[in-house]
Design a protein around this nucleic acid. Structure first.
Lengths: 222, 222
DNA sequence: GTCTATATTTTGATAGAC
DNA sequence: GTCTATCAAAATATAGAC
């Protein structure tokens, strides 16, 4: 019953300093990564202004001053976090859909998208949470850029639903834009209540897909 | 098609200072109210730590020092905002359901609850937004109390769905707790994208009810 | 790369005049 | 009730030793 295609790709890999194309993954990169993870966790828990550079430093096992070797300011740090939060999900979903066999029904495509979205959301939950809840609190320029990226992702979902409609697989009378926000809103709410001790992400996805199909897609004969 | 029962009640009316039961609604109360509105708006836009007392004062047309005549601290101010945000919605929904004729079907009850929830959410959106997005950023004691209130509200919804199930009006195989979070997550997401220029709240509610019924409740003959 | 100062600015809150 | 200072604490970011 579950459609288990998936494809992670965080995007955003820092280029090596040198100039030639050779990868030189080393200590600095590892620290930078640790700082970013610490920032995501702390920002998502306390908000943008509520998080101090000292908080992040403590979570990354560093002193506050040392953060500035890796990121030049608090603003660019939250930007990197939000960026990754959006990319994680977008890449996972887009890649998953791209990998499906061309003959896949739209109901199954939507099901796979739900699966991929939920999986990325809950696997990188600190990044996802930051990019969902903190956009409003962030400096305007950062916000503007990422609102556009989010809209692009939402547009991808709309396309999915529109194709589904064109194929006669959606229920009559449903406003596809509203259906899209309803679906994404329901999925994203998992950030607020999901606990790994409970149902697995796959079970969650199956349940959600079932509700979405029954409500938005026409019942189809098994 | 729309179930237009509704019942607003903000709760939270400050008692008059005097001691006897006589209402003395006057200048202080008006200012206090203005401060609360300003706080809700500013907190919801910039987060808890991101909002300064000076920001709130400006939005309320006062000087920063003057706020402390009405509220003793920033912490009690956000608490009042969050409190009102939760009460607005809970009261609206509970009162709406209580007012329905006993013979009302569960599908219609859910539809009325969706209508009332959406209406309260979007009418007092600054308060609702603060109590939804800022809980994590608020001092622990405030948070603990309001998490309980939110859970009580969610429990009310679960009861609604369970009664529906007992009456044979829900679709087989659906996990009611998940259905509840999915519904509320989808509805609450309207905070992020609803614009008064577009569809009316009633139209929105009808669309959402239709999706929920088709997905979660058994299709019923018209 | 990471540390230990430290400057500069901003914040929540108070005091006292009106 | 609201204003104008002002205090004390905390924050971002920088400088320079190691």
């Amino acid at each position: 019953m579950s459609t288990a295609v998936r494809n992670d790709d965080s995007g955003l890999r820092a280029a090596p300093k040198g100039g030639s194309g050779l990868r030189k993954q080393s200590k600095a990169d590892a620290s930078r990564e640790r700082v970013l993870e610490a920032a995501a966790k702390t920002f998502s828990e306390r908000g943008y202004a509520g998080t101090t550079m000292r908080d992040i430093a403590r979570a990354a096992d560093l002193q506050a001053g040392s953060l500035y070797y890796h990121y030049p300011s608090k603003e660019l740090l939250i930007e990197a976090v939000i960026d990754k939060g959006i990319h994680n999900i977008t890449n996972a979903v887009v890649n998953t859909i791209a990998t499906l066999p061309p003959s896949t029904s739209y109901a199954d495509r939507v099901r796979a998208a739900i699966q991929a979205h939920l999986h990325a959301l809950l696997t990188y939950s600190a990044f996802a949470s930051a990019s969902r809840h903190l956009l409003a609190q962030v400096p305007v320029e950062v916000r503007r850029k990422h609102v556009l990226r989010r809209e692009a992702y939402e547009e991808f979902w709309l396309g999915l639903l529109q194709s589904s409609q064109a194929a006669g697989e959606t229920r009559d009378g449903v406003d596809l834009r509203l259906a899209r926000t309803f679906i994404l809103g329901g999925l994203n709410s998992a950030l607020d209540w999901y606990r790994p001790e409970g149902k697995s992400i796959e079970e969650l996805a199956d349940q959600f897909a079932m509700m979405v199909e029954g409500g938005i897609l026409i019942d189809r004969p098994d």
